[in-house]
Simulated assay, not measured.
Amino acid sequence: MTRAPSAVPRPCLSFLFAPSLRIGPRFLSFLVVALGAGVPLAADTIYQASARGKPVIIQRDAIVVKEDSSLLVYKHFDLKEQRVAKVFLYKTSLPYSVETSSPGARQQIVETWKRFGYKATLVDDAGKSTHVFDVFLDFFPPGGRGSLLESVPARTTLPLLIEGGGADELEFSKIDRLEVQGTRLKVTQRDGQTIVGQFLMPTDKPAEVRVLGITDHYDPASADVFDFSLPLARLKEIRFE
Rank of each mutant, 00 (worst) to 15 (best):
86 K>M: 14
87 V>N: 11
88 F>D: 08
89 L>D: 13
89 L>V: 11
89 L>M: 12
89 L>C: 15
89 L>W: 06
90 Y>D: 06
90 Y>K: 09
93 S>D: 14
93 S>N: 11
94 L>F: 14
94 L>N: 10
94 L>M: 10
95 P>Y: 09
96 Y>P: 03
96 Y>T: 04
97 S>Y: 07
97 S>Q: 14
98 V>L: 13
99 E>V: 10
99 E>P: 00
99 E>C: 12
99 E>L: 15
100 T>G: 10
102 S>E: 06
103 P>D: 14
103 P>R: 07
103 P>A: 11
106 R>C: 11
108 Q>F: 13
108 Q>T: 10
108 Q>C: 05
109 I>N: 10
110 V>N: 14
111 E>S: 15
111 E>P: 02
111 E>F: 07
112 T>K: 09
113 W>C: 05
113 W>I: 02
113 W>K: 01
113 W>R: 00
113 W>T: 04
113 W>Y: 04
114 K>C: 03
114 K>Q: 09
114 K>I: 07
114 K>R: 13
115 R>H: 11
115 R>Y: 08
116 F>R: 05
117 G>F: 12
117 G>M: 04
117 G>E: 00
118 Y>I: 10
118 Y>T: 06
119 K>N: 11
119 K>P: 06
119 K>D: 08
120 A>K: 02
120 A>N: 03
120 A>W: 03
121 T>W: 12
122 L>H: 03
122 L>K: 08
122 L>E: 07
123 V>S: 06
125 D>W: 10
125 D>F: 13
126 A>Q: 14
126 A>D: 12
126 A>Y: 03
127 G>L: 07
127 G>I: 09
129 S>T: 09
130 T>N: 04
131 H>E: 13
132 V>G: 08
132 V>N: 05
132 V>R: 08
133 F>V: 05
133 F>S: 03
133 F>C: 04
134 D>P: 02
135 V>L: 15
135 V>W: 13
135 V>C: 12
136 F>C: 11
136 F>W: 11
136 F>H: 15
137 L>V: 07
137 L>K: 03
137 L>E: 05
138 D>V: 05
138 D>I: 07
139 F>I: 06
139 F>D: 10
140 F>W: 13
141 P>S: 03
141 P>D: 01
141 P>Q: 04
141 P>N: 04
142 P>H: 06
142 P>E: 08
142 P>K: 00
142 P>I: 07
143 G>H: 02
144 G>N: 03
144 G>V: 09
145 R>T: 04
146 G>V: 01
146 G>C: 09
146 G>Y: 03
149 L>F: 04
150 E>V: 01
